[in-house]
Write a protein that binds this DNA or RNA. Structure first.
Lengths: 340, 340
DNA sequence: TATCCACACGCAAACGTTTTCGTAAGGTTA
DNA sequence: TAACCTTACGAAAACGTTTGCGTGTGGATA
């Protein structure tokens, strides 16, 4: 088992100094051609690779981006990661991914861990618990130590930093408008509790769309689901004996669950009830009927977030602070769950 | 913007030496109680956190596990990651995730990058291209440098290291047996091309099950799909005018795509055709009808892989090399796509 | 008073790099 | 031959830690 070879070892073998080896490998003119070639040959033979840790310590940067997301087993977030990776790799950055599992504590731990030397900056979507607690000290602290942070999707208005979001309200409005334009009048919404920022925004968009059509929103058409894991029974209770002709669901799971329940009730989609979801994931695409949905363009979000972050990382040190909020366009993908 | 505070700075402020600060923070008896308290108070005030990079360099270990997977936007792999994270976090390890995007080159780059200082060991599932090329020098090299590697799912028989797999053949056999026991006689299989190890193993399991039932396998009941992105048309062609009463698909996507096509052909599931899939993902669970499938227990795989790796990392240095192959049990999850 | 021992702390090396600066040897110029 | 310039290399600092060991101070002991 040959251990990793270091400059020191090469230097010893070749009976030159460490600095000579380092310079030779970098093709410095300070070193004679002869020595350069000898060193390089030796390095190649022993498969020398500079130690990243040492480089990080020396350069005081890691060339690594930290991503912290609420869930790793989640299609939307993974598409965002995909986008980040794309840009990061192009620019020679590595990516560390951690999941907070929607726990505030784990978010804090992960952030502090990565912040103490492992990453130069962060792309993050905050945990549910964090949004609930409204405690952002860990993020503020990270920024105040000079590490840029880009928030995406589940952002925090109070925090001054770069952000990448979709216009959740507008997306929801588009979805609802689509249903209205199809002639639907009794449109229910399946949404989340209010402390989830995106849930609230989407609910508002739904309400706005109704208002624009002079339709009075009805309390009993709004279901704020508490426990996602148990959404089936909540939705089932909600839909029982309810006379709706359309459903707007703020995520995929709610949409397909509703579809399933309607199916069991003997209702036809889209003939009896139309459904529009949010997030263009695998479920929407492959479900029968396939679901009309609002695409969030996750990969694009990742790309933009990564670019913003890298710009900050590679930008001038003392350029006046300037923070951007990028709003990614959503788009309606029309499929089978809404009639033409 | 207060920069990160270091031992040196604290030492300077308090007019003591760096070592005193370090020891004080560690509650060393060498340092007087008085000084200790002073240092700690100051450190807390300035929110001192030891620099991980420096620690890694000093200790020659990073307390980080590298995961390299073929795809990040993939339910099964993310569940594995979930399992790895669970164990890793318990044991104080960090996790770096990279995706090879099924490209050999990217796999090599990622591995070399992480191997040069960023991670102590690896958990990896190889890229399609790597299986095709049969070039494993990068993995061998990593191991020869003393970094343990645990392979999972898409493993490489030739490589001597820890492995975590499911018994793909047995799983496929279970699936096929299930169909046979329901009285199905004309069972088709939708599988991948042979160089994907798990695809081949599953195909073999299918064949074995048929043989045990004294049913001769028919070439025209076997579809080896080349291009996953284009599976719909391949499956559609395959299924046209084909008189089958059951389908075993080696993954979720093939299963639902087949279901969709059958639906369009006016065939009822499970009455006309039964379907069994592989991988218990979101699609299988939420599809209508929900799919009977073989669960791979991804999280469990992750947990076992992480444990194996950490055991190696924390084990004695010169204990005789010993490698384990853990086989995770698969299980049949019976749902609506196969009749009772 | 000379010796010894705790006590409390500092020095320095080490981890693997990069880079600035210094310098010896040899050659060129005046 | 003295002054100078190249060429080719080495020494050392720096990044932030940890830790073994050395050491000055003061008090206790003989």
């Amino acid at each position: 088992m040959k251990q990793k070879v270091t400059l020191k070892q090469i230097a010893k073998e070749l009976d030159v100094s460490i600095s000579t080896v380092s310079k030779a490998l970098k093709d410095s003119v300070e070193i004679s051609l002869d020595t350069r070639q000898k060193v390089k040959a030796f390095a190649k033979l022993y498969n020398y690779k500079p130690n990243n840790i040492a480089l990080s310590l020396k350069n005081r940067k890691t060339k690594t981006i930290g991503i912290i997301i609420p869930e790793i087993v989640h299609h939307f977030f993974t598409t965002v990661i995909g986008g980040v990776e794309k840009v990061a790799n192009e620019k020679g950055y590595n990516v560390i991914i951690c999941s907070s599992n929607n726990s505030f504590d784990k978010e804090v731990i992960n952030l502090e861990m990565l912040a103490s030397g492992s990453a130069d900056g962060f792309i993050l979507s905050v945990a549910k618990e964090t949004q609930q607690k409204k405690d952002y000290h860990h993020i503020e602290e990270t920024m105040s130590q000079g590490m840029p942070v880009v928030l995406f999707d589940r952002i925090i208005d109070e925090l001054v930093c770069d952000k990448v979001i979709i216009d959740d309200g507008k997306g929801a409005q588009t979805a609802t408008n689509h249903l209205l334009s199809l002639g639907c009048k009794k449109i229910a919404i399946l949404t989340t509790v209010d402390y989830i920022s995106v849930g609230k925004l989407r609910t508002n968009g739904y309400l706005r769309a109704l208002r624009a059509y002079d339709i009075t929103a009805r309390e009993d058409y709004i279901l704020k689901i508490e426990d996602i894991d148990n959404c089936e029974s909540e939705i089932s209770d909600f839909l029982e004996n309810k006379d709706v002709d359309a459903i707007f669901a703020v995520n995929e799971l709610f949409a397909v669950t509703a579809a399933k329940i309607l199916d069991e009730q003997g209702k036809k989609i889209p003939d009896d009830v139309s459904i529009v979801g949010f997030t263009d994931g695998i479920l929407s695409k492959h479900f029968i009927p396939s679901l009309t949905t609002i695409s969030q363009h996750g990969e694009e979000m990742g790309i933009r977030a990564a670019k913003l972050l890298i710009d900050k990382l590679e930008g001038e040190e003392d350029v006046p602070e300037e923070y951007k909020t990028v709003i990614i366009d959503t788009s309606l993908i029309q499929r089978q769950s809404t009639k033409k």
